Amino acid sequence: MLSSETKDEIFDLIGQTVTPRLSDQLRFVLEIDKLKTIIRQTPLLDISRRENDAEHSWHLAMMAMMLAEYAAPDVRLERVLRMVLIHDIVEIDAGDTFLYDATAEAGQEEREQKAADRLFGLLPKEQAVEFRSLWDEFEAHQSPDARFARTMDRMQPFLHNVFTGGHSWKHHGVTADQVQKRMAVIADGSTLLHGLVTRLIEESVARGFLLPSSSD
């Protein structure tokens, strides 16, 4: 692996060869390679290993293209794709937070805001503003585009749990009511997909993939 000094020397060479804009864009492109090293709790369907953030983001983009017909009519797919591709970039600095780990959520927003400042700040000014705006919109999940993007983000690991027999659910002792609570936002992006998720939660409990609700 190259030393930081060698990398800086190469970036200096790039800066002398191309415009500052292109130099900044290339620095960002190389920095987000680190997303491939951020490991999530979600297993691959063959349970050979856990997926990384880059794989997760790619999968969401593919899902959004396939399932866009189940979104609200005013959802703009191109914006959804951009959101799902950038939504986890902040985890390069902030790390991945498991959806069902309440303790890990403490300080998550602060960590991610700080990460967004640094990472999107690597870009030329107008692209930095654009990317940060899309990320902020996704996090707020108030617009139709953001709601559908969030639907994809919640549904992908859910499907992986169903089709691995509740692999990470079992490992972390997750209960049906916890999953129902976390999957509720899917209804904001697609009532049809939320109905499917609700049915699959019931089936997962029946098959022993998921613990019954703590109140049962």
Score class of each variant (00 low, 15 high):
residue 69 E to V: 06
residue 166 G to T: 07
residue 144 P to L: 05
residue 21 R to E: 13
residue 191 T to R: 14
residue 22 L to T: 03
residue 83 M to N: 03
residue 119 L to Q: 00
residue 11 F to Y: 10
residue 78 E to R: 14
residue 146 A to P: 06
residue 104 A to C: 07
residue 4 S to P: 11
residue 117 D to I: 07
residue 30 L to Q: 02
residue 173 G to K: 11
residue 157 P to A: 05
residue 110 E to T: 09
residue 48 S to A: 13
residue 15 G to L: 00
residue 159 L to F: 15
residue 93 D to W: 08
residue 46 D to Y: 07
residue 121 G to R: 00
residue 94 A to M: 09
residue 47 I to L: 09
residue 170 K to N: 15
residue 23 S to M: 01
residue 139 E to L: 10
residue 204 S to Y: 13
residue 71 A to T: 03
residue 58 W to L: 07
residue 192 L to M: 10
residue 113 Q to W: 12
residue 12 D to K: 10
residue 161 N to S: 11
residue 82 R to A: 14
residue 165 G to V: 11
residue 78 E to Q: 11
residue 87 H to M: 01
residue 180 Q to F: 09
residue 30 L to G: 04
residue 104 A to P: 08
residue 97 T to S: 13
residue 31 E to W: 04
residue 139 E to W: 02
residue 161 N to V: 05
residue 146 A to Y: 05
residue 179 V to S: 06
residue 14 I to Y: 01
residue 204 S to F: 12
residue 77 L to D: 03
residue 193 L to H: 11
residue 59 H to P: 00
residue 149 A to W: 02
residue 9 E to Q: 12
residue 171 H to G: 04
residue 38 I to E: 07
residue 72 A to Y: 14
residue 207 R to E: 14
residue 4 S to I: 10
residue 69 E to I: 12
residue 191 T to G: 09
residue 136 D to F: 06
residue 55 E to M: 11
residue 126 E to R: 05
residue 79 R to L: 08
residue 109 E to W: 07
residue 77 L to F: 06
residue 77 L to H: 03
residue 187 A to M: 07
residue 7 K to T: 10
residue 93 D to E: 12
residue 145 D to G: 06
residue 201 I to H: 13
residue 8 D to M: 04
residue 4 S to R: 13
residue 165 G to R: 13
residue 70 Y to N: 08
residue 73 P to T: 05
residue 138 F to I: 02
residue 105 E to Q: 14
residue 111 R to H: 12
residue 195 G to P: 11
residue 170 K to M: 12
residue 185 V to D: 15
residue 200 L to K: 11
residue 72 A to Q: 15
residue 51 E to G: 11
residue 10 I to E: 08
residue 83 M to P: 02
residue 214 S to N: 10
residue 138 F to V: 04
residue 126 E to W: 02
